[in-house]
Design a protein around this nucleic acid. Structure first.
Lengths: 193, 193
DNA sequence: GTTAAATTTGAGCGATCGTTCAAATTAATA
DNA sequence: TATTAATTTGAACGATCGCTCAAATTTAAC
């Protein structure tokens, strides 16, 4: 293999995150990576192959961030900061507010089969990290012992998606800070049955 | 003007809902409407023009559904059914679970300017309907008098998005029924500050 | 310094994109 | 029924799509 893949993957992430899977053309990627088509194809095989590496890298970073929350001594406190972070990005990076996985998921019917299955796997992988957060918060006593772990993890993932989606459609994302507090508060709320 | 637009808009809605704005080609639409390109262009002007009519129609229907909830005597009760409905669609219509507006929003950077502004307007319009639900529930006493109306409306829209997004990535959407109960429960929960 | 292998280049392939418009068809008018 | 106006048709346009591959260049080995 030739040139450093890591840098290309980061540059490709920028493009896919901004334009989506369908909206990104090979020529966009050629420009962003400053590589000719043959180079990209020899390194990544196809647009799909490059995207899969981008998705994998992205998911790994996000998973790491959530696991850092889970491994903290005060997971609920750290969860607040984790949830608040995307609200503080500058306007020029507004496209980074929305989760890349959710964004790609929106093009579902038109995605290659390999991308579909990896998206599902990525969502499940991140849900495991959210579950680790719930478990840790339960063990530190920040959450009650009887919280339904799997439901809470899925719910938390839903709140993560909701916040990021709303934040992309609002003039000033910072004005959604109150939602972080509500999420953490509702986590200790009712979980009937 | 020529043939009935209403039917074409409904058929186009199906396609855009399944394939997204970028993923839908004029040839997909020609097939779905059983019309040749010239007919579609004479009736709707462009792909964007047709999509805008689809979006407008879709938003109107959804807005009507939410306002029906707001105008009910037991809005929170009706809200439950409204939120639960997308979880019950058969597999063949799975693409209808996700909100068409949110789905299109995901392609943001690549959308024509006219579509972008109409999407923003549609989200704001639906938020008004959610706000009407909050206000009515407050007036019937189902919600406390001190609930922050605008925040609750935005939050409710976020929960709507979260549920529909999660439901599209889960094997059995019905298994998310508990989330409806949690949403209604959290609506009466803490709204600090 | 020579040779061989690995990598990059970029013109260009066939397919598809949104769109156009002269010609054919249908509907309306007298 | 003849004439005109409104509508629909569908071949085709230029642009762009993901991708290929022979040739040029760079790197590695001796």
């Amino acid at each position: 293999m030739g040139y450093p893949r890591e840098q290309s993957i980061q540059q490709a992430t920028e493009v896919f995150w901004l334009k989506g899977y369908l909206g990104t053309g090979m020529r966009d990627l050629q420009t962003a990576l400053d590589k000719r088509p043959g180079s990209i194809y020899s390194a990544f095989g196809s647009k799909e192959g490059l995207y899969l590496e981008v998705l994998n890298h992205y998911t790994g970073v996000l998973h790491g961030q959530i696991m850092a929350v889970a491994n903290s001594d005060t997971p609920l406190q750290q969860l607040r900061e984790f949830l608040r972070f995307p609200l503080t990005v500058e306007d020029s990076a507004a496209h980074k507010i929305q989760c890349l996985i959710v964004k790609t998921q929106a093009d579902w019917a038109e995605l290659p089969e390999g991308v579909k299955s990896e998206l599902q796997a990525a969502l499940a992988h991140l849900r495991e990290a959210f579950q680790a957060v719930i478990l840790k918060a339960r063990s530190t006593g920040e959450l009650a012992a009887d919280i339904p772990v799997e439901r809470a993890a899925m719910w938390l993932q839903g709140q993560f998606i909701a916040m990021r989606t709303l934040a992309t459609s609002v003039e000033s994302p910072t004005s959604l800070s109150w939602m972080v507090d509500k999420i953490v508060s509702d986590l200790s709320g009712e979980w009937a049955q």
